[in-house]
Amino acid sequence: MRGLVSLFAFLGESACCAVSALVRPREFRFGDAALAFQRAAFDGLPVTIGVGFLLGVILAFQSAAALQTFGVEVYVADLLAIALFRELGPIITAIILAGRTGSAFAAEIGTMKVDEELDALTTMGLPPVRFLVLPRVTAAAFAMPILTVFAEIAGLVGGALVLETMRVPPAAYWQHVTASSDAPMILFGLAKGLGFGLLVGLIGCAAGMQTRATADGVGHAATSAVVGSIVAIAVADGLLAVLCNIWGA
């Protein structure tokens, strides 16, 4: 119960700091946000592209095996495009972000808490949420759509390579990809990615802020950041799926 109260207090303070930074942009620490963005987005690109590519390869192999029976393996392209743009692209990227960046946020802030750096900030009149959380959450939110685009493209390329081994011409493959995807679908996936990035950033920072000053405190914070983020992503995606179904989107 106490954890829930402090979580809501943290979310409230984060929201207030975000509004305050929008009103007075000078308060926002652009340098820290840029550094966090570089670590979250650019440093995370290789693993995101690698996992996205393998996901495309695996999905293509598994679905092609079934569709080959009917001689329509070219429809693997449609399946991949819809799955990657709507669901798997944002989800797999968010899980990678949670493992890389969310845990790093929790460990960084947790170590700072153990070293009394958060107390130092507070006594200097600098709210830790404004100083540490806001730049990181912003970085995670804006890194997600970029990483998602790369994961999706890598997945589609992986699928194309698999289908080429099954003698599906690349032109036909890409024609099916473009035919089965449209701008609203792609934008919806990217917006979802932005939301997941916010979740990962907030949960990672919250775990760091709640770190206990014990031997395993920082490790525990990093673990709960990853687990909490993955659960939150799954729940948020499930809710979105239900809402989309209700609205017929």
Binding site: E116, E117, D119, T123, G125
Partner: peptide, 17 residues
């Protein structure tokens, strides 16, 4: 907090740099 932080400075045990 702004008033207080002008009146007090703190050095923590680890330095907290």
């Amino acid at each position: 907090r702004a008033e207080l932080c002008r009146q007090i400075g703190v050095m923590y045990q680890s330095g907290a740099l």
